[in-house]
């Protein structure tokens, strides 16, 4: 095809993309939602901190051991009890009991949360889209086999299924991520299946098939692109949940290794050892965790409201 026109007659390429963004009902409605913009700003700030931490703090003493801070501290005061100093100008979030400054650790935790959150949600989106599309397009046995398997996975509360899977695979951050991918995949499969079934009711799909397009072409060029909006909304809504569940697994001791500057582990350390003496151990990592999740929930909520009502039904 040399005409460079899309099925619905719009231009392709970057200029076409920009034009589509400008015309998009979805985006303009989203932009007028103040809460969604607040969510976007929160996410952008956290992402900025995360990238800063990755570039400038990665591998530095606050993340690995407390030697560096301990030396600076003893130079300052000669007092070793300072290893768990409360928040101060020099250490805005205090020290963590092993003379590590909590502030850079919390920032680095943002990097870990966003990185593993992206991996988890990304992988389950891809898996879910694949399975959901197959189920919707082929129907019958394929549909039943895929969706009944998803039903079994959905028969557990999410954190519990993750725990059962961690018990199977063994503990550790990577296994926790794999477990969560399996936990989240069914949610995407269900949304995509619902959206794809709606798309396939449209006549242009019949027309494309009648023109002799292969299954693959129909799915990749027409069905999947038209399911992307609800999938994006579902990803955003689940991003916050995935970050919480990952942190929860680390909190329970089945995710990030002890000592890692992940929010979940820092929280568990704070609850286990600092509850009665050092409130700042648990407070700051949890605050950032909650803020990040709030950002994704605000944005996701706004996105859902901006979505075409026909597609909104596909999302629970």
């Amino acid at each position: 095809m040399s005409t460079h026109t899309h099925a619905n007659g719009r231009k392709r390429g970057i200029r076409g993309l920009l034009a589509r963004i400008r015309d998009s009902q979805f985006l303009s409605e989203l932009a007028s939602n103040r809460l969604a913009i607040v969510g976007l700003l929160i996410i952008a700030t956290i992402a900025g901190l995360a990238i800063y931490a990755r570039v400038f703090i990665g591998g530095l003493p606050p993340l690995t051991d407390g030697q560096y801070e301990a030396i600076t501290l003893s130079n300052l005061s000669g007092n070793s009890d300072m290893a768990e100093a409360p928040p101060s100008l020099r250490y805005p979030f205090g020290l963590d009991g092993q003379a590590r400054s909590i502030f850079p650790r919390v920032m680095y935790g943002a990097w870990l949360a966003l990185k593993w959150g992206t991996v988890t949600v990304g992988a389950s989106t891809v898996l879910g889209v694949g399975l959901g599309i197959l189920a919707a397009y082929y129907g019958d046995i394929v549909d039943n086999v895929i969706m009944r398997t998803m039903d079994v996975l959905l028969a557990f509360p999410s954190l519990l299924l993750a725990l059962a899977l961690v018990a199977i695979f063994g503990t550790g951050l990577q296994n926790a991520v794999i477990a969560l991918v399996l936990v989240y995949t069914p949610r995407f499969a269900r949304v995509v299946r619902g959206a794809a079934l709606k798309v396939m009711e449209d006549e242009y799909i019949d027309a494309t098939v009648a023109l002799g397009a292969t299954d693959f072409r129909v799915l990749v060029r027409h069905v999947i692109p038209n399911c992307l909006a609800p999938v994006t909304v579902q990803s955003t809504l689940n991003f916050g949940l995935a970050i919480i569940d990952l942190a929860a697994l680390s909190f329970l001791g089945f995710g990030a290794e002890a000592g890692t500057p992940s929010w979940g582990w820092m929280l568990s350390n704070g609850v286990e050892y600092g509850l009665h003496s050092a409130w700042w151990w648990a407070f700051f990592p949890g605050l950032f965790l909650a803020l990040t999740v709030l950002g994704f929930n605000l944005l996701g909520d706004g996105m859902r409201d901006a979505l075409d009502p026909r597609m909104r039904d596909a999302i629970d």
């Binding site: 929280l267 509850l275 648990a282 949890g286 965790l289 909650a290 803020l291």
Partner: peptide, 20 residues
């Protein structure tokens, strides 16, 4: 906004805070 905050705050953070 309160409700959105409520579902964003994990129990393993609100728990320690009320304990403290």
């Amino acid at each position: 906004i309160g409700a959105l905050t409520g579902i964003s705050v994990p129990i393993f953070w609100s728990g320690p805070i009320v304990i403290i």
